[in-house]
Amino acid sequence: MSQPQLQAGFANPVEDSQQAFRHLLKVMSEPGVIRPLAAATALDTLTPATFSACQTLLDATTTLWLGGALDTETVRANLGFHSGCRIVVDPAAADFVLARAGELPELMTLRAGTAEYPDRSCTLLVQVEALATTATEQATALRLSGPGIATSRQLGVTGLDTRLTRYLVERPHPFPLGLDLVLLAQDQVAAIPRTTRVEVN
């Protein structure tokens, strides 16, 4: 029995995943809002927020691309066990992409939906170091505006890389196509959906 160690997921699978989903819905509908998300424990390289989001969003009908340092045997075994999701090799076939900002695949190769079905696009789950509403030393300070935001909102993200930041600012996919971004820190979550305009301060 030298298989990777399985680990307990949500203590109350139904209630915990419903609450986590509610938080994810909140941050998606009000971009830049930071909510707590730590119903699960950390899993190997995944933070509690990331593991909670994975258990909430993934199931047997979704495909996941795992990249870089987050792609370990333990993570694969546990995500497979708890969600039953299929882990794919080709990023273009993935419904969800899970990686750190610097280890994302080429963003323009990911599924961005079609004009008839813009929802058939890929969602980026990006594990970052920290999220804050005010600008800090190392953080990339983003100014968000658009639907769900009254005027504008500040979001400081530690652990974004320049490629992802440039994608967010330039939004090369023609609306309504595009990628939605969920930022997962240690025990917090924020999101930047495709409708949000992003400026770097």
């Binding site: 399985l6 680990q7 307990a8 997921g9 203590a11 699978p13 066990f81 708890h82």
Partner: peptide
């Protein structure tokens, strides 16, 4: 024992 997946 540690519960990995509670009975469901």
């Amino acid at each position: 024992f540690e519960l990995i997946r509670a009975p469901e």
